[in-house]
Nucleic acid binder design. Structure first.
Lengths: 89, 89
DNA sequence: TAACTATATGAACATATGCTCATATAATTG
DNA sequence: CAATTATATGAGCATATGTTCATATAGTTA
C-alpha cells in the first residue's frame, strides 16, 4: 500500500498536479513552467527534481534549457480521470 | 486543481488507503477496522472523521457500534486502479 | 575567457499531518 | 441507575512538506 500511497502523494499537491497537467499537454522548459504557473524557478525545479526521482518525468537538454516531458502514462491517466470527475459534479 | 489535489491527498496516506480498501470489501465497525489493520481505535476514528468530512464514507449506528461503508464509487475506482497498476510491474 | 542565461541544490522556515494520550459522549446491560 | 462497551474528540508532539533565499553548476555567446 505504501507504493500506492506514494503515487497518490505525488498527485496530492496542487503545484505538482499543475506541472504534470501542463506537461501532459506540451513539453516545457523549467522557465516556461515557472512563467505559466506563476511559480518561482526554484520551486518548479525542486518539484521537477521530485518528479524525476519518481520517474514521472524525463529531461533532455536543448541549448542551455532543460526540456521536461512526462514519462508515466498511467499516472497521467489517473490524473486526467480525477480532473474529469472533479469537473462533472 | 485544489479539489483534485484534495482527492489525491486523501489517498496519499497508507492508513486511509487501507481503511478505504477494507471498506471496499466489507462494511466495518470502527473496532473491527482497528483490529484488522492493527491500528489504535483513536487513530482509526480520526481518519474516519476525515473521510466522513469528505463524504467518502458513510455511517449508521447498529447497537452501540458504528458501521462504516464507502460512499464515493469514483474514489474507490481510482484506488483500485492504482493498486492494480502497482501490482503489475 | 568573461559575462550571461538557465537550471539545480542546500539550508532554513512556516505550516500541515498523523499519531498518542486522556477524556468525553452515547448506547447497552445488569 | 451504575457499570460497561464502543466511538469521538481535543491537545500536544514529532515528523514531513513546500516554499524562499542564496548560491552553485553548466552551457552559450560576445
Amino acid at each position: 500500500m505504501d507504493e500506492v500511497a506514494l503515487m497518490f502523494k505525488t498527485l496530492s499537491d496542487p503545484s505538482r498536479i499543475r506541472i504534470l497537467y501542463l506537461l501532459s499537454q506540451e513539453e516545457c522548459s523549467v522557465g516556461h513552467i515557472a512563467e505559466v504557473l506563476k511559480m518561482t524557478q526554484s520551486a518548479v525545479s525542486h518539484q521537477l527534481g521530485y518528479l524525476r526521482t519518481l520517474r514521472l518525468v524525463k529531461v533532455r537538454r536543448e541549448g542551455n534549457s532543460m526540456i521536461y516531458s512526462y514519462e508515466d502514462d498511467h499516472v497521467i491517466s489517473l490524473m486526467k480521470q480525477a480532473i474529469q470527475h472533479a469537473e462533472h459534479r
